[in-house]
Design a protein around this nucleic acid. Structure first.
Lengths: 191, 191
DNA sequence: ACCTGAACACCGTTCAAGT
DNA sequence: ACCTGAACACCGTTCAAGT
């Protein structure tokens, strides 16, 4: 079984750490608050993760794996790349909806100077996953030519990360929606 | 005189704190490193700023005041709103050029949950200053109608903040330039 | 006024001892 | 196997006490 006591604790640590890091960053994530949420003591976390760097890397890896799966799932189910493209901003909206959080990797991108390399690597992969998916979908929907699709994918990803960041600073979900709408009007995102 | 020992210490603390916060955030800004850069002891900082919140607010206020002055100066000197709009991304590029730093207020926007209200207030003002200036210049250059200028201004500000954040995570100045170029191609920024 | 030593609270981490 | 109390070395923050 994968659902024995060990993997359950590990799962719950990962889930709580993800939530905390989306609100406070890697630096602001602390073992005592994390342990409190899971219902164990800080020292017990070391039974599941060798170090904070190890935990941070596992959290970020999990984050992009889930994102990649959700995006691929959306595309497989709808078979409509343009529709997928219209729904892409929703995945970032959810973080704001849930306690005004932001994308884990956006926060970690800001923390570049203080991030262990094992964590940084996963942050970069999150961006790669998003850009690769967007590029494929942009091409399939014929929004841009295949030669420009990666460029445009990067621009969309960066712009949405920025919109999420600014909306968080105002705790204003409507601002996020307005920014996405502006991107559509301006031509960055397909209407 | 404004250049006596007191104001010099204060100035040097502000300057060093700004640089540190652009790289490590408000949470990652620490008094010992800050004091080392200024050549005093950590406790001495409290003679110039009542608390870390007070210092953070002063730093952020200084930051948007300087930005507002620089933007107004650029517009007054060139008298060419379209030219100003083309140079706007350069002001964010400079932070990346200087030790891969990002906009102080972008980092602080991520830290929303852990920021004292006095600091948060200045962070919001930085965004307001930029959006107001962009809105005015967009209108003057007739890039968009005056009714849509504020919407577009917000979109440009958010997108550039995002581009800076992503470029930092890759330590890649060329990526920032490519993102700005993509924004122009897509129609978000005037070519 | 300007500065600092020293205390304080908190951090990630370790480890012997518990179940 | 999983967990914990207690301790460790360290660090950011604060304040009473110096000059």
């Amino acid at each position: 079984m994968s659902n024995d006591a060990s993997s359950n604790s590990r799962e719950r640590i990962l889930a709580a750490a993800t939530r905390l890091a989306q609100a406070h960053g890697y630096g602001g994530l602390n073992y005592r608050d994390l342990a409190d949420e899971v219902g164990i003591k800080a020292a017990s976390i070391y039974h599941h993760f060798e170090s904070k760097a190890d935990l941070g890397a596992a959290v970020a890896r999990r984050y992009w794996e889930n994102s990649a799966a959700a995006l691929d799932d959306m595309l497989a189910k709808s078979q409509d790349p343009l529709r997928c493209l219209r729904h892409y901003p929703d995945t970032f909206r959810k973080a704001l909806e849930t306690g005004n959080r932001i994308c884990l990797c956006s926060f970690m991108a800001a923390e570049t100077d203080d991030l262990p390399e094992v964590v940084m690597k996963e942050v970069r992969t999150f961006a790669d996953v998003n850009v690769t998916w967007l590029s494929k979908v942009l091409s399939a929907a014929a929004v841009v030519g295949s030669r420009e699709s990666k460029q445009r994918a990067r621009a969309i990803f960066a712009a949405i990360a920025g919109a999420q960041l600014i909306a968080r600073s105002r705790s204003d979900l409507a601002l996020y929606d307005a920014l996405i709408e502006s991107y559509r009007k301006a031509g960055l995102l397909p209407a």
